[in-house]
Simulated scan of single mutants.
Amino acid sequence: MTRLARITAALIAATALLAVLLQLYVGLERRPDRTALEEMWRMARYFTILTTLLVVLRYTRVAALGRASAAWTGAITLWALIVGAVYHGLLARDLTGLRMVADQMLHSAVPLFVGLWWLAFAPKAALRPAHATWWLLWPAIYAAYALWRGTFVDRYPYFFVDPTRQGWDGVALWLLGLGVVFWVAGRGLVALGGWLSRDRPHPDNAAPADPRPR
Results as ranks from 00 to 15, higher is better:
130 A>V: 00
78 L>Y: 10
117 W>M: 04
13 A>Y: 03
25 Y>C: 06
83 V>T: 10
79 W>Y: 11
155 R>C: 05
20 V>L: 13
67 R>D: 13
62 V>M: 02
151 T>D: 14
180 V>H: 03
109 A>N: 01
120 A>R: 05
8 T>N: 10
118 W>M: 05
169 D>S: 12
124 K>T: 05
1 M>V: 03
187 R>N: 09
156 Y>C: 02
185 A>N: 01
54 L>I: 11
205 N>F: 00
75 A>M: 13
134 W>P: 15
32 P>M: 00
75 A>Q: 10
139 P>K: 00
47 F>P: 03
130 A>S: 11
130 A>Q: 06
148 W>R: 03
158 Y>Q: 01
160 F>G: 07
99 R>N: 15
35 T>R: 01
204 D>I: 03
78 L>M: 13
212 R>F: 15
93 R>L: 09
88 H>F: 15
186 G>E: 06
213 P>L: 03
205 N>I: 00
138 W>R: 02
73 T>C: 08
97 G>L: 02
171 V>H: 10
114 V>F: 04
47 F>H: 06
115 G>M: 05
144 A>S: 09
60 T>N: 05
34 R>S: 11
78 L>N: 11
66 G>D: 05
75 A>P: 12
20 V>I: 14
148 W>M: 10
176 L>Y: 08
82 I>D: 09
178 L>A: 13
194 G>Y: 00
118 W>H: 11
29 E>G: 11
80 A>K: 01
168 W>C: 06
51 T>E: 11
